[in-house]
Nucleic acid binder design. Structure first.
Length: 588
RNA sequence: CGGGGCAUGGCGCAGCUUGGUAGCGCGUCCGCUUUGGGAGCGGAAGGCCGCAGGUUCGAAUCCUGUUGCCCCGACCA
């Protein structure tokens, strides 16, 4: 039965809702797809629900096609599994927690690694049962600090999450690739531009992770991409290409110089240019080695200082640093901490005092650019003094390297000889090699061919289903409203009946019936006494890709077919309209 | 958690400075006219002005407190 606008539970808004900033939010509310209930919590109205179901259908199709099996976990979960995995504490305020009448703790599931792991452990115990892939499409809950942009970032949202279980890493690679391929098909069908970026695999077990980002100005994720080769990565995941080590034969010996009142890179560079001018070029910030001390706080509450050496022209990127030291948190290295370590001279810290073997005993990690043979000006660990011509590998070493320096537009691509630029996107999907983190924590093991217990290797894979609805609108709208890709549109055809002549409405119903007989889904604007302008505006706002206008031309046996995206209209004889529309919908 | 802003019919807003019968546009309902780009005229319904105190003869308006919401940032498998 066709939907009829005269009775459909829908009210379009002529004006923009005041709280909606991004286009998708504005349009989904104005066109009557969603209504806000509370911050980050939305009702799906009939048209919106149809779109949401369409996204689910596509996801389901492609998951089933790779042999993943659908199941459904509760959203209301006991807290114990999350305590076992350590995430009850780790997730912090982002979990919705509640207590039942007996005082037992529960939570609303933010994600389901634990439950999948435990359920597989419950039922399976042999390598013969693997590989296995399970998925669910389910409502998730996260008490986001700041929900925003309508359903783009909600506190309640629909997500498809799936998990793969393999007996070894090679199996995981296969499962991962299967999922990745399925995701490519899903996002192609959803109809938006996206990039696949390398992401952080996390501290434990995982070895590979990629995110599917819908390219969008309003996106919350910044990523970098190569201007030439197709490389794309999250800022956190960018690997700085380390230059080759250079021989240090013949380089001058290091020498300590007085550099009074030069606690910052800027003052130091000025001083160098004044007192120790170079022959070839002026000193620049990039000639200096900046040593930054931070404090790490581990999950168990212990604290550990960490020194990071990076070229002086770069800042430490907190996100990149945070991703590197996960699960530890980065906190400020404050005055108190400084005063407790007498080997540190603020503003003049140099490699000489750093490292687990150095005077300070602080672990020291270097930016990958600081390779053997490079010469630096850096602190001499005395007030007002710096060392010049300090050569990495000859005069100092560190405990390792770390990717913590900011990534800048124009930096070298790790993959080719070109440079990087930044762009923004919306995270739509994530494929992730979990490894054994959860299997280990929750004891998921199977017997292998030799009768030995081995820990199962897992992957996790997510698609933001409700978010996809908003992301698709971000990429598919114009000044008048939404322009749905065919597979997502709430219906295939929107029939607009204009005028007051009864034959027009009769014809609209006949066409609707015939189109439905051909298997198309139809919406009829059968409202009486509503002016044509209103109906045209509404049809454009709602965004069904094919609009059939039945009105004044009917007297001459003509109706109009309009393409929402191109705005092209053509008149066809009344008798041919069904065939023409079917062709257009199926072909397009 | 930091910064900024806003709470007045379903939606968008004015009124507040200078206290005195709560208003406008859209939407909704009734009648007549109109019907290819958000129609016209006439009539109508609908609001404890976020909440709680206070000042005052009198508070949407002034004062105090409080709650909620929105935007930016921090945060975010």
């Amino acid at each position: 039965m066709a939907l009829h606008l005269s009775s459909l539970f829908l009210r379009t808004l002529r004006e923009d809702p005041v709280d909606a900033e991004v286009p998708s939010h504005r349009l989904l509310v104005r066109a009557g797809y969603v209504r806000r209930v509370s911050p980050g919590v939305y009702t799906w109205l009939p048209l919106g629900l149809r779109v949401l179901r369409n996204v689910e259908r596509i996801v389901r199709d492609e998951m089933d096609a790779i042999g993943a099996q659908e199941l459904l976990f509760p959203a209301l979960l006991p807290k114990e599994p999350f305590e076992a995995s350590g995430r009850y504490a780790e997730y912090g305020d982002n979990i919705f927690r509640l207590t039942d009448r007996k005082g037992a703790g529960h939570l609303l599931g933010p994600t389901h690694e634990e439950l999948f792991t435990l359920t597989v452990k419950d039922l399976y115990s042999s390598y013969k049962d693997l590989p296995l892939a399970l998925y669910q499409i389910q409502t998730k809950y996260r008490d986001e600090a700041r929900p925003r942009a309508g359903v783009l970032r909600g506190r309640e949202f629909v997500m498809k999450d799936s998990y793969s279980f393999d007996v070894d890493a090679a199996g995981l690679d296969k499962s991962y690739q299967l999922h990745r391929d399925a995701y490519v098909r899903i996002f192609d069908r959803l109809g938006f531009h996206y990039v696949i970026v390398q992401a952080m695999a996390g501290a434990m077990g995982g070895s590979k992770s990629e995110e599917f980002l819908a390219t969008a100005e309003v996106g919350e994720d910044t990523y970098v991409r190569c201007t030439s080769c197709g490389y794309a990565a999250n800022v956190e995941a960018v690997r700085v290409p380390a230059p080759d080590a250079v021989p240090f034969d013949g380089l001058p010996a290091s020498h300590v110089e007085d550099t009074p009142a030069t606690p910052t890179i800027e003052t130091l560079v000025d001083h160098l240019n004044e007192r120790f001018p170079r022959d070839d070029r002026p000193w620049a910030a990039g000639d200096t080695l900046k040593n930054v001390i931070v404090m790490l706080e581990h999950p168990d509450g212990t604290r550990e200082p960490l020194a990071i050496g990076i070229p002086g022209d770069r800042a430490v990127d907190e996100k990149r640093l945070g991703a590197q030291v996960e699960p530890a948190e980065v906190v400020a290295f404050d005055e108190v901490a400084f005063s407790q370590n007498t080997a540190l001279v603020k503003g003049y810290i140099g490699p000489g005092a750093l490292g687990t073997d150095g005077a300070s005993g602080i672990r020291y990690l270097l930016d990958p650019r600081v390779v053997e043979g490079t010469r630096w000006v850096t602190g001499a660990n005395e007030p007002g003094r710096h060392v010049l011509d300090l050569v990495a590998g000859r005069d100092f070493t560190a405990d390792g390297t770390i990717e913590a320096a900011e990534v800048r537009v124009g930096d070298a691509c790790p993959n080719c000889e070109h440079t990087l630029e930044t762009a923004r996107g919306i995270e739509m999907g994530h494929v992730f090699q979990l490894g054994t983190k959860y299997a280990e924590a929750l004891g998921l093991k199977v017997l292998d061919q030799n009768g030995k217990l081995v820990t199962v290797v897992m992957g996790s894979y997510g698609v933001g289903v409700s978010r996809a609805v908003a992301a698709v609108v971000e990429g598919n709208h114009d000044a008048s409203g939404i322009v749905w890709p065919r597979e997502l549109s709430p219906v295939d055809v929107h029939i607009v009946a204009t005028g007051k002549d009864e034959p027009v409405f009769v014809a609209a119903e006949e066409v609707a019936r015939d189109l439905e007989a051909q298997g198309l889904r139809v919406l009829v604007d059968d409202r009486k006494g509503v002016s044509p302008g209103v109906k045209f505006k509404d049809s454009e706002l709602i965004g069904v890709p094919t609009i059939v206008v039945i009105g004044r031309g009917l007297a001459e046996g003509k109706v109009e077919i309009k393409d929402r995206r191109s705005n092209e209209r053509r008149e066809v004889p009344r008798d041919e309209v069904v065939a023409a529309v079917v062709r257009e919908v199926r072909g397009g």
